[in-house]
């Protein structure tokens, strides 16, 4: 019998295993939601598809590992990585991204694509190609007669992701900057006419996205493994989630992200982990094709 079949049958014999697989996926999915939300933010406000998104996440993970090596406690690395990437995001905006806002999407795609290669290779050069992770040393809970283990770090990561997401929503709704960001997203020219410094808003948006990625990366390093070239898969995941959930709706983003996490983990278990990446890419193509076919029926194209 082929391995995938045996693996599926395993679920019948031990349903708890299915719970385990799906649960693990869902817990990781929360972090995808963060990366996707940041991507949607940049996309919606600046009209840029940030191809370097995944590399920012991975960089956050490496920075967290570095801070931890300097003796910082695991959970403090999250805000530290976020702060560092906030700064980096600002620098990237001031150095590169500001030149491509408002230009053809073609240009920003290529520019952020170049940035993604740059950062991935930098990470590779500085920290090497080995797989890394950060042990938060929190242990795990055992449930369902001790068959299912729940890593406490993963639960903590989920909680942190939710708190971060909620904080972001509150920030965008209530703060001055948040309102400026939303105004710019709706109509940049009108916002400018009303005295909003859109250039500053763009910089802040890009920096905030950096911070989100930084935090997501630190969390990922704690509950999973990272390596220099894992960024692309995160970009693809974020993109897939955004396409599925749209640019504005956090609840949908979270739902899509948790779903993706669970599906990915399930497929990874059944077909083998080596197919997990291929699955994510295929899923993205499937989602894109599905959405564009639906739009094509009403004579529209995905834009």
């Amino acid at each position: 019998m082929p391995a995938p079949m045996t693996n599926l049958l395993l679920f019948l014999e031990a349903p708890a295993l299915l719970v385990q697989v799906l649960l693990d996926g869902i817990l990781i999915g929360a972090i995808y939601a963060l990366a996707a939300y940041g991507m949607a933010l940049v996309w919606g406000v600046m009209n840029i598809v940030n191809v370097v998104q995944g590399e920012l996440v991975i960089l956050g993970g490496y920075l967290a590992i570095m801070f931890s090596g300097l003796g910082v406690s695991a959970f403090l690395t999250v805000p530290l990585a976020a702060a560092a990437l906030f700064a980096l995001g600002w620098v990237m905006y001031a150095g590169v991204v500001f030149r491509v806002t408002g230009k053809d999407m073609f240009v920003s795609l290529l520019a952020t694509f170049g940035l993604s290669i740059l950062i991935a290779q930098l990470i590779n050069q500085i920290w090497g190609a080995d797989v890394r992770s950060l042990d938060a040393e929190l242990g795990s809970w055992l449930i369902l007669d001790s068959v299912v283990t729940i890593s406490r770090a993963r639960v903590a990561a989920l909680a942190a992701a939710l708190v971060l997401g909620a904080a972001l929503v509150v920030f965008l709704r209530t703060s001055r900057l948040g309102r400026a960001i939303r105004a710019t997203a709706q109509n940049a020219r009108a916002a400018r006419a009303l005295g909003v410094d859109t250039d500053w808003v763009y910089a802040a948006t890009y920096a905030i996205n950096g911070a989100i990625c930084g935090a997501a990366g630190a969390l990922i390093a704690m509950i999973w493994v990272i390596h220099p070239f894992a960024g692309l898969v995160f970009t693809i995941r974020a993109f897939a989630i955004v396409i599925l959930a749209g640019l504005g709706n956090l609840a949908l983003v979270i739902a899509a992200a948790l779903g993706l996490g669970a599906a990915e983990n399930f497929v990874g278990f059944v077909l083998g982990a080596q197919f997990q990446g291929a699955f994510v890419f295929s899923l993205l193509v499937a989602i894109l094709v599905w959405r564009s076919r639906r739009l094509a029926r009403s004579r529209k194209v995905l834009r």
Binding site: V49, M105, I236, I243, S292
Partner: peptide
């Protein structure tokens, strides 16, 4: 049938 960034990322 996809255009711009959708085609590129696909």
């Amino acid at each position: 049938g996809l255009r711009g960034p959708y085609f590129a990322i696909a």
